[in-house]
Design a protein around this nucleic acid. Structure first.
Lengths: 192, 192
DNA sequence: GCTTCTTATTGATTTAAGTCAAGTAGCCGG
DNA sequence: CCGGCTACTTGACTTAAATCAATAAGAAGC
């Protein structure tokens, strides 16, 4: 079932994907469940997978001075991976944790590299994904640099209202770079 | 001369690059000079090039409330482009400006796509570049989220001391997300 | 060499967020 | 249904940066 979902996703994303290519990919796909609160990866571990979230939600966070710093949320129909660890083959720096009961489809690093070598079309897909993520990251960086916490919250509420429903407020606070108390006051200001 | 520099760079970066491939790339390379202060691109324009900086320095910035927000510096032997505009084929959002007299080698979008299609090796190179930039962007984002301006300045001074020499302080201030006055005080605190 | 413009510093004041602490409300598990 | 935990809110106070304004030091142009 998660595999069918992924197949439709790929068929749409990659025009020209053949059944043979898909069969090859499917053969190595690992379907895995995560319970709410469960860790997908922890700092120090090696990330060997790029993971498609079929259902559920995850967050990236690190711990600095005993405080959690949330740096990303990812929901179903998106990719999950500790990219730096995966791409550079170095130990992970951050935690990734399931925020809800989730279902994921994982592809091993070796298999991904093999696909890149065997199928230029998939390598192109990999490039396009990396480029898309890059643009997103640049965008987010610019918003962190040029907007106040209040503006960032408003933008988030406007662009991803569902995120505010699915994620505890103290994680949102961390994500936009303020304390939970500060976010609470920002929200109060907005109502008044 | 800039082309020879670029050729060595590529030979090192892309094992397996053939002379034929290089000849094809060189054929479409455009060498261009920029004077200090000159704009490489402005918001609203279409970015059609990915550019290798052979010599010099550039900054990315946007203007918000009549204030300049510097979001990136790039020096020689690195790539320059308004990536979002280049990749998405949408109008540029930011300015890119030469901070010194500079020399650049530019490749047109169409030519880059053609190379990707003709040479899987170059497409792979494109993917690796995008992945590298992605990791850099994620890193910078995490530092913006989890560090104070003072910590960011210290980190910058440690990791890129040459940047502090080549770039006016008020641009550094903007880059780390504070006013010039605040950076001046941070520096004073450090000395004392 | 002098003027002018730009960049950097410093001071006084305001503002927004951080911190510490307490209290409330909602939710989950027993 | 109750008890305990977690998330959220609120208040008082502290801290750091923004803002406004003025001055000083350098660099660029005439």
């Amino acid at each position: 079932m998660p595999l069918n979902q992924l197949k439709s996703y790929y068929k749409e994303m990659i025009p020209g994907l053949t059944d043979e290519m898909w069969a090859n990919m499917e053969k190595h796909a690992i379907v895995q469940q995560y319970k709410k609160g469960e860790l997908y990866i922890s700092p120090g571990e090696q990330e060997n997978f790029v993971t498609f979230i079929s259902k559920g939600a995850f967050r990236y966070f690190s711990v600095v001075d005993e405080k959690e710093m949330v740096c990303e949320f990812v929901f179903e129909n998106n990719y999950l991976s500790e990219y730096e660890s995966f791409l550079r083959r170095t130990p992970a720096k951050v935690y990734i944790q399931a925020l809800e009961d989730s279902v994921a489809v994982k592809f091993h690093y070796d298999h991904v590299q093999e696909c890149y070598s065997n199928y230029p079309l998939i390598e192109r897909f990999g490039r396009l994904i990396a480029e898309k993520f890059l643009i997103d990251a640049i965008d987010r960086m610019n918003s962190l640099l040029s907007s106040s916490p209040e503006e960032r919250y408003n933008k988030l509420a406007e662009e991803k209202p569902e995120l505010l429903q699915r994620v505890p407020q103290y994680m949102i606070a961390s994500f936009i770079g303020v304390t939970p108390e500060a976010l609470s006051r920002i929200r109060r200001r907005l109502v008044a």
